[in-house]
């Protein structure tokens, strides 16, 4: 048996369910977005769902908001995750405890933390009560609008909460496998702390952090649970628009949901390809 056959045989058990179920479902979804579904007698594919979705006047605002939220969530995640990893690397006292706490968000599903954020950040939430208790605000309306707000702050907070540990742990393991040699060398050559950070540590971590951040970006760009609970009524993020088409009592809107979902997927794929081209460097993917 040659190596190619062996490798394909080894990957087959994982490939088969993904190809059949996932890509099968994907294929059906694409067909439905073209209003093409022979099983129920729709046998002339057309673009009407796409033209209607593209004419939706909320679309542009929604795209801007979605980009704003997912890009800022991704960049803030990286910045804070690296900061946290650097601090955690050399923490001594209580390290185990803090590390465990740091890993904890990985186990909490998005919906729970979104509900927690709602109870924490709303104008009558726990944070507002704390500030009222210390006399910082006198009325609940003095508390800033942090959920269901214009900029998606509540949504970003939840994504940060979930993703910082994910990226942070990757960063931490890179830092640990990197050891101290490079830094010490740089320092012995007279580099300042900030120079070590920006010219030694970060460039070394970059290739490891970018792929994880693509996963984060794809997730924030394409999932609806968190913006559904914490977003504003208008404009809403793209996945919420899809969800709204999908659950509309008017069954007419199903192909629209699929068309928009396919457009989101296309946008994501283009982003990933561009990323690979310009930032990917020596990475796989």
């Amino acid at each position: 048996m040659n190596r190619n056959t062996a490798a394909w045989l080894l990957t087959a058990p994982a490939l088969i369910p993904v190809l059949i179920l996932f890509f099968g479902g994907f294929g059906l979804g694409i067909l439905q977005s073209f209003s093409f579904f022979p099983l129920i007698g729709l046998d002339t594919p057309n673009f009407s769902a796409y033209t209607e979705v593209l004419a939706e006047d909320e679309l542009l605002l929604s795209l801007v908001l979605t980009l704003l939220v997912s890009l800022s969530a991704t960049f803030l995640t990286i910045a804070l995750a690296v900061t946290a990893a650097l601090a955690l690397r050399s923490a001594e006292r209580g390290r185990r405890g803090i590390l465990f706490l740091f890993q904890f968000p990985i186990t909490v599903p998005h919906v729970i933390i979104a509900l927690g954020a709602l109870l924490l950040l709303s104008q009558s939430g726990f944070a507002a009560r704390l500030t009222a208790f210390f006399g910082i605000i006198s009325d609940s309306t003095d508390f800033p609008v942090l959920v269901n707000d214009r900029l998606g702050l509540g949504i970003i907070y939840v994504y940060l909460w979930k993703q910082i540990p994910f990226i942070g742990i990757i960063a931490l393991s890179v830092l640990q496998s990197m050891g101290n040699d490079y830094e010490e060398l740089a320092r012995s050559l007279g580099a300042k702390q900030s120079q070590v950070l920006f010219h030694v540590i970060l460039p070394l971590m970059r290739p490891a952090l970018l792929p994880g951040s693509v996963l984060c970006f794809a997730f924030t760009f394409g999932s609806y649970e968190v913006p559904f609970l914490l977003g504003r009524s208008y404009p809403s993020m793209l996945p919420v628009l899809v969800y709204r088409y999908f659950t509309n009592f008017n069954l007419v809107q199903r192909p629209l949901a699929m068309a928009l979902a396919v457009l989101i997927t296309l946008f994501l794929l283009v982003t990933v390809i561009l990323y690979k081209k310009f930032l990917g460097g020596r990475n796989r993917l």
């Binding site: 394909w8 479902g25 994907f26 439905q32 794809a218 394409g222 609806y224 997927t265």
Partner: peptide, 25 residues
């Protein structure tokens, strides 16, 4: 590369794109 992309795609492609079709399957 193709194998890798296929195996990664469930994490990259938004699940709502495939859910409706998967349900029918």
């Amino acid at each position: 590369t193709i194998v890798e992309i296929i195996l990664l795609s469930p994490a990259l492609i938004p699940s709502m794109t495939v859910t409706m079709g998967m349900q029918v399957l």
